[in-house]
Amino acid sequence: MDIFLQTTINGLMIGGVYALVAVGLTLIFGVMGIVNFAQGEFVMLGMYASWMLATYLKVGPYPGLLPVGLIMLAVGYIVFRTLIARVVGKPDEVAILLTLGLSIFLQNVILVIYGADYLTVQTTIKDAALNFAGLSLPLARVVAFVVALIFVGLLSYMLAKTDLGRAMRACAENRNIATLLGINPKFIFTLAFAIGIVMAGLAGVLLTPMFYVYPGIGTLFNLTAFVVVVLGGMGSVPGALLGGLIIGILESLTGTYVALDLAPIGTWLVFLLVLFLRPSGLFGRRVN
């Protein structure tokens, strides 16, 4: 029972971070129909930004959340305006290929600039853990989990209760009517995309105490984010949250009880099952 509880909690905590990465992905898809294959790379960029701040300005990861968030906002804006805006409204595969190219491009530009060295961001809480009731919770993971949930919560609140959020949901439902209602879709899309990127970047910051920073680290989270989004339903923020937690736990359980190197298969099988049985996911809109 002890092991089961520990495994589940391990999974839950990393699931929180998966949720944060996925939430950005699902927002982007929900509002403008773009499948962003480079989401993981923006997590990586967030990590590099965090590292830069820590190394040159001596700003630790957690205080760095705000500046990195702002940086990613700018990055998201630029990327949207130069690339993504062109393919909104085009068939999904176009966006997949474009963002795939972006993903390869970003990974390797960072490689050329920074080299492939594994970088670290030092924090004081790195090795600390909360130990109680036979369980062990690494502090960095707990903080990541809590902060991730806070951001997801803020985003949900924004979408549900603010005018901006309502405008986003309107665009997601039906762009033409939204325009008639006086909403500027281009502005909404830009903002939604930027926010999605910010979420990825923030997740990156939260991850730096736990992982080395290197150009390829984005790929680890990319695929998981997609699985989470499909499970939760493309376009649903609560879905991304729940999906993230479920996938985190599932991965952890498969790893412990089946075999560690088969852990990804558990995730993929669930993913395929969801795709075949209920492609709209837990909370998504019905897909024909």
Binding site: L98, L100, F105, L106, Q107, N108, V109
Partner: peptide, 9 residues
């Protein structure tokens, strides 16, 4: 690979 990604984009 940068070129490769750029080409695709």
């Amino acid at each position: 690979l940068v070129l490769y990604g750029l080409l695709l984009i």
